[in-house]
C-alpha cells in the first residue's frame, strides 16, 4: 500500500508497521533539559485509537490462522477498555463477535465505546479485597466462559499470549529504532499486560544493549485504567524483569495533572497513562541530564473526561449556565 497517497482498500492497511509507523513528536515546552530531548510516540494515531491495536491485531490474526474462529465461535477477553475496543472493532470488521468482560471502574465512555464498536459487554464488580491467588475478577470470568463454553468462545488472553509481545517486537521496536535513527537512549513505558515493554525492549536491547528501559507505575489504589502497579503485576505472565532498568512509582493523581499540561502546553491530547509516563520521564531527564528519550503514549484524553473531572475538580466548574 502507498501511505503517501493515504488511500486504503480497508482499515486493516492503516495498522502500524515499520513502513507505516505512528508519529514521534518532540516535546518543546515542558521538557526542562535541552540536552535530553523527549519524543512522544502517539499511539492514539492508530486506527482504533490506542496502542492496543497492535496486540489486538496480532492476537486476532493468530486465532484466524490457527482456525480457532469458526461459525458460532467468537472471542471473549477481559479488558479495561482499549484492547476490547481494538479487538471488537477488528473482529467485527472481519465477521467475528467479541464478549468483553470489563471491571466496573472502567470509565463509562469506554464501556459505551465498546458497545458502539459492537462488543457484547459483561460488567463485573471490582476486586473486593486484595488477596493472594485471586488474580483479577474479569480475567477469571473470561477464562470461565472460554473453559465452560468452548463452542462459543475462544480467549486470546492478552495477559499470557506471546503474540502480544511479538506484536511490539515486530512493529513498535523497529519503528522507534528507525524513527530515532538508532539514537534512542531511554524508553519510557507503562505496565499493563506488559506486552509493550517486553516486546519493544527486547527489540531495542538487541540493537543496543545500553538502551535504558524505564517502566512507570501508578501508586497502589490508583485510578488509571489499564495500568497495573507492582502489587497487581502477578496477573501478567508477560513481564520480564530482566528487560527493565528502573521501575518508577508515581502518585497516580499526577497522571491527570500532567495529561492536562501536555494538552495545554504541547498540543498533545495525552490520556492519563501518558501523563504518568511523562512524569516518570521528567524524573529521569533530571537525573541523567543527557540522552534521547522516547515515551510511548498509549491513548488520548477523549475517553477520560469523567475521570478527569473527578481528579481535577476545576474542570467540572462553570459547566452550567
Amino acid at each position: 500500500m502507498n501511505h503517501q497517497t493515504r488511500v486504503y482498500d480497508n482499515i486493516f492497511e492503516l495498522l502500524p508497521t515499520e513502513q507505516n509507523p505512528t508519529p514521534l513528536v518532540r516535546l518543546n515546552q515542558l521538557n526542562p533539559m535541552p540536552g535530553f530531548p523527549l519524543y512522544a510516540k502517539l499511539e492514539w494515531m492508530n486506527p482504533f485509537g490506542s496502542v492496543k491495536d497492535r496486540a489486538a491485531w496480532a492476537l486476532l490474526r493468530d486465532l484466524e490462522e490457527r482456525g480457532l474462529l469458526t461459525e458460532g465461535r467468537g472471542l471473549v477477553e477481559p479488558t479495561s477498555g482499549n484492547t476490547g475496543i481494538s479487538l471488537a472493532a477488528l473482529a467485527r470488521a472481519r465477521g467475528h463477535r467479541l464478549l468483553a468482560v470489563v471491571p466496573n471502574k472502567v470509565p463509562q465512555e469506554k464501556k459505551i465505546l465498546l458497545k458502539i464498536v459492537g462488543a457484547d459487554l459483561e460488567v463485573i464488580s471490582d476486586e473486593l479485597c486484595p488477596a493472594p491467588g485471586l488474580g483479577d475478577g474479569s480475567i477469571n470470568l473470561a477464562k470461565t466462559h472460554a473453559k465452560a463454553s468452548p463452542q462459543k468462545y475462544v480467549m486470546p488472553n492478552q495477559y499470557e499470549n506471546a503474540k502480544n509481545v511479538e506484536a511490539h517486537y515486530t512493529t513498535t521496536g523497529p519503528e522507534i529504532w528507525r524513527q530515532t535513527e538508532g539514537r534512542i537512549t531511554h524508553l519510557f513505558v507503562s505496565l499493563g499486560t506488559c506486552g509493550t515493554v517486553s516486546g519493544t525492549a527486547k527489540f531495542l536491547r538487541e540493537k543496543n544493549p545500553d538502551v535504558k528501559i524505564i517502566a512507570v507505575q501508578p501508586t497502589e489504589g490508583h485510578d488509571v485504567p489499564g495500568l497495573r502497579n507492582v502489587a497487581q503485576l502477578g496477573v501478567s505472565k508477560l513481564f520480564d524483569a530482566a528487560l527493565v532498568d528502573d521501575i518508577l512509582e508515581v502518585d497516580f493523581r499526577l497522571a491527570y495533572t500532567r495529561a492536562v499540561e501536555l494538552c495545554r502546553h504541547e498540543g498533545l491530547l495525552a490520556g492519563p497513562s501518558s501523563g504518568l509516563i511523562f512524569e516518570g520521564a521528567l524524573e529521569i531527564v533530571r537525573r541523567d541530564q543527557h540522552g534521547h528519550g522516547v515515551m510511548i503514549f498509549p491513548d488520548n484524553i477523549f475517553k477520560y473526561t469523567s475521570n478527569l473531572v473527578k481528579h481535577i475538580p476545576e474542570l467540572g466548574a462553570g459547566l452550567q449556565p
Binding site: E122, I124, S125, L128, G137, N140, L141, T144, H145, K147, A148, S149
Partner: peptide, 11 residues
C-alpha cells in the same frame, strides 16, 4: 460465590 455471575458462566 461472591460474584453471582460466576456459577452461570461455568461450574
Amino acid at each position: 460465590d461472591v460474584d453471582s455471575k460466576a456459577y452461570a458462566a461455568g461450574h
